[in-house]
């Protein structure tokens, strides 16, 4: 209950951002929400299942590209969005065979799978526009009703990300979520208890791909432009960093992590050349000094434990 109030308070605070009247901050906050949701999808796998996927950027990208292609091709939003999420889920089902492995193997295999998406995005020019990407993606509209400017779009994103966070909290506290924790901590024992652990990990993987897909849909609509940069390996990698940096295992953590990383990408990058060095140092610093993340540092926000 306390956590719900906290989330509501954060949502309310964020709702004031458009009142500042500065499109830069509105845009940046939307990016944080979108990439925070992507980081949630990674955090789910890390924290609840104990696997570190490096392919969620591919789910993100395939959904973003699907929305971009269908919307610019004249499809209505009500058809484009489900198609995009379905595309991400299908990719998740295909890549899901990687849950047959674990540990390092899982990390490397998902990384290689994710890279496949990028190679398609850059080489299948007829479909994806190659390096030029797809431009002029309109705002979403259902039956002619939809956001018409940046601040209205902001509220759409805020509402949808909020909704996904609630769904996420529901999943990890469900019986299914609990069995995932059991598999993470003692897989052999769960097998002995009669659970089909691989199937459950597979389902979790597909759920993760759906969350990443929703983030990708929102990315396409807010950015109004999709290029291979969205499919870059770095998207997957930085989403993982956001999850760890924020404090893996909390609903709020991935968004905190997204705030730091998007801040570096959008603010620091304009000030100093060579800002990726700073990004690299953040990676290193997190591993050395903050393996429990920012939330673990303050310890004030309760862990999202089932």
């Amino acid at each position: 209950m306390g956590r719900l109030i906290l989330l509501a308070a954060i949502a309310l605070a964020l709702a004031t951002v458009p009142m500042l009247g500065n499109p830069f901050w509105v845009g940046l906050t939307m990016q944080v929400l979108v990439f925070g949701l992507l980081a949630v999808s990674v955090d789910f796998m890390i924290r609840q299942v104990g696997l570190f996927p490096l392919c969620n950027g591919a789910f993100f990208a395939v959904a973003a590209y699907t929305v971009a292609m269908l919307e610019t091709g004249g499809w209505p939003t009500v058809a484009a969005v489900p198609a995009a999420i379905a595309a991400a889920a299908l990719m998740g089902m295909a890549f899901g065979i990687s849950v047959r492995t674990g540990g390092v193997y899982f990390i490397l295999i998902t990384l290689a799978f994710g890279q496949m998406a990028l190679s398609v995005a850059t080489s299948w020019t007829a479909l994806t526009g190659g390096d030029n990407g797809i431009t002029n993606i309109p705002y979403p509209a259902v039956a002619g009703v939809g956001p018409t400017d940046l601040s209205q779009m902001f509220f759409v994103v805020l509402a949808l990300v909020g909704l996904m966070v609630l769904v996420y909290a529901r999943i990890i506290t469900s019986q299914f979520g609990l069995t995932l924790n059991g598999i993470r901590d003692a897989e052999t024992r769960m097998v002995a208890l009669g659970y089909r652990t691989v199937t459950r990990k597979y389902v979790a993987f597909v759920i993760s791909s759906v969350f990443a897909g929703v983030a990708g849909v929102l990315y396409a609509y807010t950015n109004q432009f999709v290029s291979p940069a969205a499919a870059s390996l770095l998207v997957s990698v930085e989403a993982g960093l956001m999850a760890i940096l924020g404090g893996s295992g909390t609903v709020i953590g991935p968004f905190l992590g997204a705030t730091v990383i998007m801040g570096i990408r959008n603010i620091v990058s304009a000030m100093v050349p060579g800002w990726p060095i700073l990004m690299g140092l953040v990676f290193i610093a997190v591993v050395l000094f903050l393996p429990r993340g920012l939330v673990g540092l303050t310890g004030r926000i309760k862990r999202a434990r089932p």
Partner: peptide, 24 residues
């Protein structure tokens, strides 16, 4: 050596090192 064999931390750490070296 400070990752103490945790593959997740090793991956993040060495990706960070990649960023630093490549940008340099």
């Amino acid at each position: 050596t400070r990752t103490k064999g945790d593959p997740l931390l090793q991956v993040l750490l060495t990706i960070g090192i990649t960023y630093v070296i490549a940008e340099t």
